Simulated assay, not measured.
Amino acid sequence: MSAPRIDTEARQGLTMVSPPLIYAVLVLAAPLATILAYSFFRDGYLEVIHEFTFENYRAVLSDPVFHKILLRSLWVALAVTAATVLLAFPVAYFLSFVVPPERKALWIFLITIPFWTSYLIRVFLWKVILGHNGVINATLTGIGVIDEPLSFLLFNVQAMVITLAHAYAPFAILPIYVALEKIDRSLLEAGRDLGESRMMTFWRVTLPLAMPGVIAASLIVFIPTIGDYVTPELIGGGKIPMIANMVQKQMLALDNRPLGSAVAVTAMLIVAILSVLFLLLNRRFLRVRS
């Protein structure tokens, strides 16, 4: 009698899951499949020739410009991820261990306030802050610290890292906070009862148990950052392109959809491989810690 019951529960589960699954396939899988198909076509004059070829991938993998832009994108994404997680962990730790339970909801509400405004507006605000006549230069000039506006605040990689780290900070704080909230406080008390200092208790107990949240935060920040288009265009002034800018140029400016699709697919594969390697390395780290 248990087998029919399991089959019934499975059918009910599939019935509940099928609408969002169909939606995900239509919204996510269909565009990805289209891009993948285009990457194997040939580009003709003002048209796409539906002829199977690997020429686009050979062109991408042998292009030194692609290598340079990919390395830059990876470096920027890693720098943003490191900066965001390092800044988010103390905030999440403070929220989990210091803030009284009755005030945590208020703090989470305050952390999510940046989501109320458009991402594009937040990037524009950083351009206003770091610009030649922006807030920082105007303040420093007004109080007499500098005579002329600083020219190195904007249109460089450092400005892009600052902007992206600010934009994705809430995405890093929340998963780390959730992981810290799941830690059994009795484990920390046991560590201190055994003579461990607060620092060693944090290193041996808190940090390993919080690693799932750190991993989730790292992936949540790393994956969208490497494909960001707006920040390199506005904060980088269009002079420091990343992968998304290269895809946009091939797709729209040069109207070479097959090559642009090949660039996009290659970048997605590289990001997927790096993400899997990161998860495997951290799983090994967790196993060693345990």
Score class of each variant (00 low, 15 high):
Ile176Asp: 02
Gly191Pro: 07
Glu189Cys: 01
Glu181Ser: 12
Lys182Gly: 07
Ala172Gly: 09
Val178Cys: 05
Arg198Asp: 15
Met199Phe: 12
Thr201Ser: 14
Leu174Met: 14
Gly195Arg: 04
Leu180Phe: 03
Thr201Leu: 05
Gly195Phe: 02
Glu181Arg: 05
Arg192Trp: 04
Leu174Val: 10
Tyr177Arg: 09
Leu187Lys: 08
Phe171Ile: 12
Ser186Ala: 06
Ala172Glu: 13
Arg192Lys: 12
Trp203Met: 13
Tyr177Met: 09
Lys182Gln: 10
Thr201Phe: 00
Ser186Leu: 02
Ala190Asp: 03
Ile173Arg: 00
Arg192Ala: 04
Leu187Cys: 08
Ala169Gly: 11
Thr201Cys: 13
Glu181Ala: 06
Ser197Trp: 08
Gly191Met: 02
Ile173Val: 10
Met200Asn: 08
Met199Val: 14
Ala169Tyr: 11
Ile183Phe: 00
Met199Lys: 10
Leu174Lys: 01
Gly195Ala: 12
Trp203Asp: 10
Tyr177Cys: 00
Ala190Gln: 10
Asp193Arg: 09
Ile183Lys: 11
Arg185Tyr: 11
Ile183Thr: 12
Val178Arg: 05
Ala169Pro: 12
Met199Cys: 07
Ile183Tyr: 08
Leu174Ser: 01
Glu196Arg: 12
Arg185Trp: 08
Phe202Trp: 09
Met199Thr: 08
Tyr177Leu: 13
Thr201Gly: 13
Phe202His: 08
Asp184Gly: 07
Pro170Glu: 03
Ala169Glu: 15
Thr201His: 00
Phe171Arg: 15
Val178Gln: 07
Phe202Ala: 13
Ile173Ser: 09
Phe171Ser: 15
Ala179Ser: 15
Arg192His: 12
Ser197Pro: 10
Gly191Ser: 11
Thr201Tyr: 01
Pro175Tyr: 06
Ile173Glu: 04
Pro175Asp: 01
Phe202Ser: 02
Tyr177Glu: 06
Gly191Gln: 01
Ala169Ile: 15
Gly195Cys: 06
Arg198Pro: 13
Ser186Asn: 05
Glu196Gly: 08
Leu194Gly: 07
Phe202Gln: 08
Met200Trp: 15
Ala190Gly: 11
Met200Asp: 06
Leu194Asn: 07
Leu174Ala: 04
Asp193Tyr: 02
Ala172Leu: 06
Leu180Thr: 09
Met199Ser: 13
Ser197Asp: 14
Ala179Val: 12
Arg198Met: 07
Gly195Thr: 03
Tyr177Phe: 14
Ser197Tyr: 06
Ser186Pro: 03
Pro170Gln: 13
Glu196Pro: 00
Leu194Asp: 05
Lys182Trp: 00
Leu188Lys: 11
Ser197Arg: 04
Trp203Ser: 09
Pro170Asn: 07
Glu181Trp: 01
Met199Gly: 14
Ala190Trp: 02
Gly195Asn: 03
Glu181Lys: 01
Glu181Gln: 12
Ile176Val: 11
Ile173Trp: 02
Arg192Asn: 05
Ala179Met: 08
Asp193Gln: 08
Pro175Met: 03
Glu189Tyr: 02
Asp193Glu: 09
Leu194Arg: 03
Arg185Ile: 08
